[in-house]
Structures are given as structure tokens and as C-alpha cells.
Amino acid sequence: MTTLINEQGLRVDGRRFDQLRPFKLEVGVLRNADGSAYIEMGKNKIMAAVYGPKEVHPKHQTLPDRCLLRCRYHMSPFSVDTRKNPAPSRREIEISKILREALEPALILGDYPRTAIDVYLEVLQSDGGSRCAGLTAAALALADAGINMRDLVVACAAGKLGGQIVLDLSDVEDKEGDADLPVAIMPNLNQVTLLQLDGMMTGEEFKTAFEMALQGCKTLYDAQKATLISKYFGKAEPPQQEVQEGPEE
């Protein structure tokens, strides 16, 4: 087994125990999608696209009082070391489901009865924590699509490597470490919308890891906000004279 933490307390990629991998967020990267975003987190490269609200196909899935939310997490065949069959695996189907359930509380679906919103995540290159990175990008794409939301959703994992609790596991740390705890939150409403645990932790370690994951989410949330503001408003300060000049509803 590789040494995951060296004598200086540094990890395989040189990070401290509580440090995120380098990341990059972009919004509005696709032309056809109603909303889109792109995230790089470590080696993860993930494209998120939102179509909707739109008409429901097939029609029988229509809900009379709210919008139907669908989510698809998919990995391109070249995204992993050994080529992946393009057909959706059981893992991808499970992740699609928990991502949908993590996003749903943030969306005001009652505002769009009899319509559908499709959230598509395409993993172009995968590293540890692709579901968390995907979720962070999906929330940006939903905001970009201009869908009414109670809050953004932001996700980050913490885990355990040889007894040490660390933030944001990479691929090798995920595979060779002891535990992985992905967490997603709605940061303003203070609610957890995704939580999984894969591996063994003591109750105390769980608490430490959970708090560390929340800390990671906070950093990423600030970046989410900054990305949206700079995309839509550039560097300009809010105008102090009246902006809405047209007829009002």
C-alpha cells in the first residue's frame, strides 16, 4: 500500500489534511442548454447541463401540481483508466438517484406544474469525489437556467486515511483509504441534502469528518457565488439609479 500521509503530514499530492484540491468553476458554457456549468476538481472534469422547465415526454409522467425533476449522471468511456462501457452502470444509476434527491429540496418545483427539468452530468474525466463535484456544478447550471431555487446546493467529501481525518479525497485516497463521507448542503438553509458513508469511523471521527466536509462546502459555496456574480454582472457595481424601466407585472 502507498503511504497516504508522509512524516511531514502531507498527502500524496502534497496537500495538508484539511486542504481542498485545486478547482475551477465556469457557468454558461454550452449554447443549447438552458443552463450549464463546468467544474474541474483535482482531475475531475465534469460538464453539467440543465434543460427545462419544459414539456414532459413521455406525457404520462406529467405531475399535475409540480415539476418533474430528472437527473442523469454519466461517465464518458474515456473518463477512467480502463475504458468504461457507455451503457449506464448500476453505480451511475444510484448516483443519479441520490443527486436528484440532493437537488430536489433546493428547487421550488411547485412553481412549474406539468413541466420537467432534466439535469445532465457528464463526467469527462473522473477522479475521487466526482458526485460531489458534479452536484456543485449542477446547482450552478440550475441557477444559470433561471429556475426558482430556495438555495444553492454544494457538496464536498471528507474521509479517513490511516486514522487521520482528511478533506476531499482524491482517487487513490478514496481507493486505498479507510472511509469516505460525501456531504451536500444547502448553505443558507443549513440543511444536509446528501450524505453517504463508505467505510468505518468512530462516532468522534464521524463528527470531525462531517464538520470538515461542511468547511469544504463553505469554501466551494463562496466560489459558486463568485462564479455566478462574475458571469452575470462582471465587475460592475450594482447601479444606484432605477434599472427596471418597463411596464411592471
Partner: peptide
């Protein structure tokens, strides 16, 4: 050679 027209690419 394999091509996937992903659902992210078009409505």
C-alpha cells in the same frame, strides 16, 4: 469508433 450524442448536447 463509438459516438454518443449525449443528452446535454441538445433539447
Amino acid at each position: 469508433v463509438n459516438t454518443e450524442v449525449l443528452p446535454i448536447s441538445s433539447r
